[in-house]
Amino acid sequence: MEDWEEDEFDGPVKKFMYVNRKAPYGTVYALEGLEVVLITAAFDQDVSLVFIDDGVFQIKKDQETSGVNMKNFSPTYRALEGYEVEKVYAEKESLEARGLSEEDLVIPVEILSAAEISELMDTQDMIVSF
């Protein structure tokens, strides 16, 4: 196994967008997806993070998960700032459809319409959906 963390990566910077579409529990995609986001940031890449569909529930405040015997990993999203991941977006339509607004979220996000997110996607080198 290689200790990638100790390697200085001296390559080009690309624009990576991670699209979170799934609820935080029920499947493992959100939890393991967040790991990828943090590591991409550690590689000094230009990282954007978007929450769409049930993915907006990932960053909902006051998650209480003991009933489903799952670790509440929502506090980890607060670590994004420390990794200098500052381009964090949530889709307006997805929030509205679920009765959520900015103050319901565990981290500050920029709220964009589906059309605006689509434009943002056009500017990326890489889009990975979890």
Binding site: E2, W4, G11, F16, F43, Q45, M126
Partner: peptide, 19 residues
């Protein structure tokens, strides 16, 4: 077996990352 950094690196080196 290796770390997630290998995924990020594949994205950086490659022209496309296909999921």
């Amino acid at each position: 077996i290796s770390g997630l950094g290998q995924l990020v690196e594949a994205g950086i080196i490659g022209d496309r990352l296909v999921t």
